[in-house]
Structures are given as structure tokens and as C-alpha cells.
Computed example of a mutant assay.
Amino acid sequence: MADKTKLTNMLADKVTDYKRFAFILLALSVFLFIGLIVPNEGVSQYQQIALIGLSVCSLAFAALFHKKAMKAQEQLYSEE
């Protein structure tokens, strides 16, 4: 009984953490994208490409963490 409760708590904590990671990465990608939109004369082409790449990577990792959160949540519901 204690092991099942411990597993349930661990899965619930994982779901919460993964959702937080996904939200933070999503917010980061929004800020990076805003940095692309705001006109700035001193930004080189390389810096713009770097911002685009970082924004896309951040979105990809946010999607990955969201998928992991949903997988852990399904496990949590199957355990209960």
C-alpha cells in the first residue's frame, strides 16, 4: 500500500514538473520570438538565425515535455 502511494505521489510530481518545464520553455520561445519582431538595427543576420533556431528548439522541447507529462498522467490514472 505504501509503495503504491509513493508511486502515485512520484507520478503526480513528475506530471507537475513536466508541465512547468513545458510552460517555461513556451514562455521562453515567446520572448525569443518577440526579440525577432522588435526592429533593431544592430542585429546581424547570424543573430536572427540564432534566435529563430533557439525559438524552434524551445518549442520542440516544450512539446516533448508536454508529451512526457501526458504519458505520466496516463500512468497515474492507470495506477489509481
Results as ranks from 00 to 15, higher is better:
Lys19Pro: 05
Phe21Trp: 04
Leu59Trp: 09
Tyr46Arg: 15
Phe33Gln: 13
Asp3Pro: 15
Met70Val: 06
Ala27Phe: 00
Leu7Pro: 00
Leu25Trp: 01
Ala12Tyr: 08
Gln75Glu: 15
Phe23Asp: 08
Ser58Asn: 00
Leu36Ala: 06
Leu25Thr: 01
Ile49Arg: 14
Leu11Pro: 09
Leu25Ile: 05
Ser44Tyr: 04
Asp3Arg: 15
Gly53His: 00
Ser29Ala: 10
Glu41Met: 11
Asp17Leu: 11
Thr5Glu: 14
Lys14Val: 04
Glu80Ser: 14
Val38Gly: 03
Ser44Phe: 03
Leu26Asn: 11
Ile37Gln: 10
Tyr18Gly: 01
Lys71Met: 07
Ala72Cys: 05
Glu80Gly: 12
Ala69Asn: 03
Val30Asn: 03
Ala62Thr: 01
Ala63Trp: 06
Gly42Asp: 13
Lys19Ser: 05
Ala12Lys: 12
Phe65Pro: 00
Ser78Arg: 09
Met10Thr: 14
Lys71Thr: 11
Val30Phe: 00
Tyr46Thr: 14
Glu41Ile: 12
Lys4Met: 02
Leu64Gly: 00
Gln48Tyr: 07
Leu51Phe: 09
Val15Thr: 01
Lys68Trp: 13
Val38Glu: 06
Gly35Gln: 04
Val56Pro: 00
Phe33His: 11
Ser44Gly: 10
Ile37Met: 12
Ala62Ser: 11
Ile52Thr: 06
Met1Ser: 14
Arg20Ile: 10
Met70Ala: 09
Ala50Val: 07
Asn9Val: 07
Leu36Asp: 07
Val38Ala: 06
Leu7Ile: 08
Val30Arg: 05
Cys57Phe: 13
Gln45Pro: 03
Ala69Met: 02
Ala69Tyr: 01
Ile24Asp: 08
Thr8Cys: 12
Ala60Thr: 15
Ala69Lys: 04
Asn9Cys: 07
Ala22Trp: 05
Glu41Asp: 12
Pro39Trp: 02
Lys19His: 07
Ser29Ile: 05
Lys68Ser: 12
Tyr77Trp: 12
Met10Val: 14
Tyr18Gln: 02
Met1Arg: 11
Ile49Tyr: 15
Leu11Ala: 08
Thr8Asp: 13
Phe33Pro: 04
Glu41Phe: 12
Pro39Phe: 00
Leu36Val: 07
Lys6Ser: 14
Leu25His: 03
Arg20Met: 09
Met1Gly: 15
Phe21Ala: 01
Thr8Ile: 10
Ser55Gln: 04
Leu54Glu: 05
Asp17Glu: 13
Glu74Gly: 12
Asn40Leu: 15
Leu11Cys: 08
Glu41Val: 11
Gln45Val: 10
Leu64Pro: 01
Ile52Trp: 03
Asn40Val: 13
Leu54Ser: 08
Ile24Gln: 03
Leu11Ile: 08
Leu64Phe: 08
Val56Arg: 00
Val38Gln: 03
Lys14Met: 06
Asn9Leu: 11
Leu59Thr: 09
Lys71Ala: 13
Tyr46Cys: 10
Val15Ala: 07
Leu26Gly: 11
Ser58Phe: 00
Pro39Ala: 03
Ala69Ile: 05
Leu76His: 03
Phe31Arg: 12
Ile49Pro: 06
Leu59Gln: 10
Leu51Glu: 06
Leu32Met: 05
Leu59Ser: 12
Leu11Phe: 10
Leu7Gly: 03
Ile52Gln: 01
Ser78His: 08
Ile24Tyr: 05
Tyr77Ser: 13
Leu32Ile: 02
Ile52Ser: 04
Met10His: 14
Val56Gln: 01
Asp3Glu: 15
Phe23Asn: 06
Ala62Cys: 04
Leu7Tyr: 07
Gly53Leu: 00
Gln73Thr: 07
Ala27Trp: 01
Ala50Asn: 04
Ala60Trp: 14
Glu79Met: 10
